[in-house]
Nucleic acid binder design. Structure first.
Lengths: 167, 167
DNA sequence: TAATCCGATTTCATTTTGCAACCGGTTTTT
DNA sequence: AAAAACCGGTTGCAAAATGAAATCGGATTA
């Protein structure tokens, strides 16, 4: 028997699940970067997450029902991580955090263009993105619009513009 | 010389500032509970924050510009903590986190009624609350509507209803 | 057959957390 | 005037979390 929770406040309970420096980073990479395998999450992570931390966070997110884990049929050793509906519905939280960070913290242009689009797109764009995530992660029908592609293309455009400026 | 940031991503930078189990709890208590003094934040905190943790978080939030600290003219030893505009604009983040936590985590009715009202009130209610916070913390003119009172009265009603049920 | 890739685990040093006791000074109560 | 309560913290210490680097046994690819 251990104490279950510090309090029944929704803010507190959310912090108990996601209140650390890495959990939301992992979910972000799955959601916006479409990383589905351990190695992808490890090697392509912008902040340099360590493998033991990643393993621990995946385990926790799994236990909390934010993600699921399945065997990859194409590779006996590969695991595919997917967002649950609970995880997908973190999108509005990301949108708000992204908007706040973009306004108040020293973000870089390339890494904040997605947050800018998501803020300007509003709840309608969030809903479209969540539909897409349900298709990718939960097997729902694929919507025509791909918000993920829109976000990625905008990111790529910034990166290319900056490469041209330097080179 | 130390590495300044893990990356320029707005999500990451926000987590570097607020990504732990206590920082947002402190801001929440200032914002929704109107706690302005160290002892209030310490003694009335629902989750039982320790005094050294509270002191550390206040110091960090101060350094990050989320709150300010001033002497209390009525008591030579008292300090008054206030939210900055940067802190006040965390309200939409709280609204979204609260909505997510309320939907997916084992919240209690009393401690989640505020989140429910804030979710149903939408951006218009958030704006009204932020105006009130600017009055209380930044000396802006006092608006007629008091969202804080609305939230507190709803909370009190739930507590009283439950006391009646038990007694 | 050799190299690479797979999701982790292990080891160990450092940092953070949490609890409890305590501090010097101020204000209030008796 | 003396005692009690209150003020914003600090200190000491044990336990837990974090982070970097090396490593693991098995699976797949070249």
């Amino acid at each position: 028997m251990e104490e279950p929770h510090r309090s029944g406040c929704p803010i507190n309970l959310t912090l108990e699940v996601l209140g650390d420096r890495w959990s939301l980073i992992v979910v972000r990479d799955m959601m916006f970067g479409n990383r589905r395998h351990f190695r992808e999450l490890l090697m392509q992570n912008e902040e340099g997450i360590a493998s033991n931390i990643l393993a621990d966070r995946l385990k926790r997110l799994l236990a909390e029902g934010v993600i699921t884990r399945a065997d990859d049929p194409t590779h006996r050793q590969k695991a595919i991580y997917s967002l649950t509906e609970k995880g997908i519905e973190l999108l509005p939280v990301f949108a708000m955090i992204g908007a706040w960070g973009r306004k108040w913290l020293p973000v870089t242009e390339a890494l904040s263009i997605r947050a800018e689009l998501l803020e300007k797109g509003g709840p309608q764009m969030w809903a479209a993105f969540m539909e897409e995530l349900r298709a990718d992660h939960l097997g729902a029908p694929k919507p025509a619009r791909s918000v993920r592609r829109e976000l990625f293309e905008a990111y790529r455009a910034v990166v290319e513009k900056q490469a041209a400026e330097v080179g």
